[in-house]
């Protein structure tokens, strides 16, 4: 059975900051990084991002590769413009006080698959 963003919210006891209507999106794969260029290496469909970097740049990168949602860890309080931007587009952003390690562990336990990471120089 596919893991949904809602399942992640429940497993983490996470707060939903935006995109309530998108919580039933099915997670294709999960990726985790704080570096924009790393995130942009992802070519999987339906990727969900777990990150410690609560910046607008992350949201723009998300848009570029059509991520289905983002989870901020360590209780990172995102800038107000992030939440406003995400609400505008109905994009699901959730936040948890848990660490990166525990967040990834719990999401892994739900059965969500890992995204494939191939660095750019290994592609040609």
């Amino acid at each position: 059975m596919a893991v949904k963003i809602r399942d992640v919210v429940n497993a983490l006891g996470a707060d939903v900051l935006s995109g309530e209507d998108g919580l039933d999106r099915e997670i294709g794969v999960v990726i985790s990084s704080d570096l924009v260029s790393d995130i942009l290496c992802c070519r999987d469909e339906g990727a969900f991002l777990i990150t410690g970097l609560a910046k607008i740049q992350i949201l723009r990168a998300a848009e570029v590769i059509d991520l289905i949602g983002i989870c901020f860890v360590r209780g990172k309080e995102p800038e107000r413009e992030i939440v406003a931007y995400a609400r505008q587009t109905g994009f699901p952003v959730i936040t948890t006080a848990k660490t990166m390690y525990e967040t990834c562990g719990r999401v892994y336990q739900l059965g969500a698959k890992s995204g494939e990471y191939i660095p750019p120089h290994k592609r040609e």
């Binding site: 704080d34 570096l35 924009v36 260029s37 740049q57 992350i58 750019p120 040609e124």
Partner: peptide, 15 residues
């Protein structure tokens, strides 16, 4: 701090 500086931008473009 803004998420840049992996040194992967140009290699990403080429790929």
């Amino acid at each position: 701090e803004m998420g840049f500086g992996a040194g992967l931008g140009l290699p990403n473009i080429r790929s």
